[in-house]
Simulated scan of single mutants.
Amino acid sequence: MIKPSLLLEVASHAAMGIAVGLGFAFLVTHITGLGIAALINYAPAPNAVMLMFVGTCAIAFGIGATLTGLAITLTEDSDTPRR
């Protein structure tokens, strides 16, 4: 049986991962030394490429944080009393 608290923890890890992914995409595209923004601007459809880049970063970080949070939550020792 899946507990609602487990779903809430997994959802919060997913939201945190997506937020970190969006922050990463923002920083990477605004640091001119990396040249990612210039590379995106040379594309035939820069708006679509930027949207795909930001979406990929958000999804990748979100999935990673969700799986990590799920693994940590499921391996947590439940014998310790909660305060």
Rank of each mutant, 00 (worst) to 15 (best):
I2A: 01
S5C: 00
S5T: 10
L6I: 02
L7K: 02
L7I: 11
L8P: 00
E9R: 08
E9C: 03
V10S: 03
A11H: 01
S12C: 03
S12T: 10
S12V: 07
H13I: 00
A15R: 01
A15L: 12
M16G: 07
G17K: 02
I18Y: 07
I18P: 00
I18C: 08
L22M: 09
F26H: 13
F26Y: 15
L27T: 11
L27P: 00
V28C: 08
T29L: 14
T29I: 08
T29Q: 14
H30A: 03
L34T: 06
L34W: 12
L34K: 04
G35W: 01
G35H: 04
G35I: 01
A37K: 11
A37F: 06
A37S: 15
A38I: 03
A38M: 09
L39G: 12
I40A: 05
N41G: 03
Y42F: 12
Y42W: 12
Y42E: 14
P44F: 02
A45V: 14
P46A: 05
N47P: 04
A48P: 02
V49S: 10
V49W: 11
M50D: 14
F53T: 13
F53W: 10
G55Y: 12
T56M: 13
C57T: 07
A58G: 07
A58L: 05
G62D: 10
G62F: 06
G64Y: 05
A65K: 08
L67Q: 09
L67Y: 11
T68F: 08
G69T: 03
L70D: 02
A71Q: 08
A71E: 05
A71G: 13
A71K: 08
I72M: 12
T73Y: 08
T73D: 14
T73A: 15
L74K: 09
L74P: 01
T75M: 14
T80S: 09
P81Q: 08
R83V: 13
